[in-house]
Design a protein around this nucleic acid. Sequence first.
DNA 1: TTGTAGGCGTTATCAA
DNA 2: TTGATAACGCCTACAA
Lengths: 336, 336
Amino acid sequence: MIKLAITILDVQKKTGYSLSTISKYLNGGNLREKNRIAIEKAISELGFKPNQIARGLRNSKTRTVGVLIPSLSNLFSTTIITAMEKVLQKNEYGVIICDCGENAEIEAQKTQFLIDKKVDGIITMPFSLDSTHLALAQKSGVPVVIIDRMLSPFECDVVLVDNLNASYCAVEQLIIGGHKRIGIICGPQNIFTTEERLKGYLRALDDYYISLDNTLIKFGDYNIESGYEKLTELWSLENKPTAIFVTNYEMTIGAIMAINSLSIDVPNELSIIGFDNIQLSAVVKPPLSVVSQPMEKIGEVVAKLILKRMNGDNSDFPQILRLKTEMEIKASVKKI
Amino acid sequence: MIKLAITILDVQKKTGYSLSTISKYLNGGNLREKNRIAIEKAISELGFKPNQIARGLRNSKTRTVGVLIPSLSNLFSTTIITAMEKVLQKNEYGVIICDCGENAEIEAQKTQFLIDKKVDGIITMPFSLDSTHLALAQKSGVPVVIIDRMLSPFECDVVLVDNLNASYCAVEQLIIGGHKRIGIICGPQNIFTTEERLKGYLRALDDYYISLDNTLIKFGDYNIESGYEKLTELWSLENKPTAIFVTNYEMTIGAIMAINSLSIDVPNELSIIGFDNIQLSAVVKPPLSVVSQPMEKIGEVVAKLILKRMNGDNSDFPQILRLKTEMEIKASVKKI
DNA sequence: TTGTAGGCGTTATCAA
DNA sequence: TTGATAACGCCTACAA
């Protein structure tokens, strides 16, 4: 309970050197070898640690990056964060992670929280379409990088994947396999990725002159339950699909559970392509075909981009980085 | 790019009132109605926001709680955090979330990071058994609350569940159902929860005079893949189990996938009890029996406890709060 | 009720 | 190379 705040002053008392000399030591300035050693010794003996808050006040730099995502229970976000952190850590930046529980109001609050904490940069996967707070941060000199979606007309660096073509390729594979009734389980409506992935689906059908059947398009919630539910709905159609494309990881898990519950024979009765997590694709039987996003890569790219911005390099602003997805077709897809 | 830091000084210039009067306004002191209004107006016109860093330096209070968990890709942790945040937010505390990627060294670093950020309290689900850094924080007056495990001999507030009895009850149900060959898929060895849950299993067997077969005990990694793998291993035994208890959520998902892949008939060939997430239990067929931990409750209890400590109330220290789990037996368990 | 002054711990500037 | 001093923005005695 005793506050034992050791400050430079204590080091000063112990060594006799001035504050500025000690400060210089801390910040890697030049000083006489003898003095350096004496100070070093005193510091380690006292267990002195510079007060980061005071530093932050003085320098208006906190060497901290704020990360804001819609929800913590989403593999895509958390995997990216983990990768991102590694790079940032290597560059001696700390990370503050926030989630907004998919609530626009809280999102605004949290953005403000990060700004209040004087983070040197913000990485966010925006939930609402309102970029007011982010624009504010950006204007006041805090670089912002958005992941996974665009927030037009807000001018901002963005890192995302080529959702449209990813989706297009997956559906194309199914078409090439001879499928004509192809179901899709999308995310929530009005979400950027949902729209892009749906567009890819529509374009593929269009390009191959397959007529559209709206009953084959389902909108879920990007979670396990809705994957289960939407697959069940698709399977209960009178005119069942012969193939289904599921557009995120959690829903893919749910869909597989439904498939198993309904004892659907994959791929003989139904072909399926899922999303993300190649590990999973190896773990289920038959091996699951998946479109996988380069999550680690995204994390790294985002981290490097924000580092560049925080270093004051504003070249090519706003930078839109579109990474390519990969597709692995396995036994879960059958030619008919 | 232009730093437009508006400070109290600007408010002073605009209103003519002194710094302390304005400060008083900010901190809810008494001032004349007229002045209050004038200041309020100036503040909102200027868009002034008190600098939290400066406040932190001055008050050595940041109204921020640090949260440190082993991994972000774990439903249990993230659900607790989400619940916890709600309570903290209501009390005007912000939260800094950190994960250590299940790496002891990074865990120590992150703990230090939180201390450096001068958080007012730390909530952690420790990964390593080394409590040095936490003890340091605690000693310097930052309350620490541990969740989900104990870190003896470190004296600390703890919130966890009654793992042993939860496990005991689940296994007991299977035994009552007539099962004698009961498999268990545990977490990694030497982990607190693994040990407690295994103890419950062993004790139940013992209490009911069922002889122990070590081949029925598998240690996984608390993730989907290992659930899949360990269930497959159990099913490949010559002398198969008739029932299996899976001891966390991710492994339960994996186990279900394996069950489906292997076309195991639940509950006729195999009874199964999983862990956590009642939603899931409703979503699969047959409905899954689960032991569920009160994750939201844990979050709330933890938040309240740390709030109490941060308010200087150290009564009943160290407090060990053991919450009860719930069990729902459904069609996935069959009497034989 | 309002204002003055000093300090929280650090660093940058400038002089020695 | 080292040291004194003045900030960074805010809050709290204390005095008026």
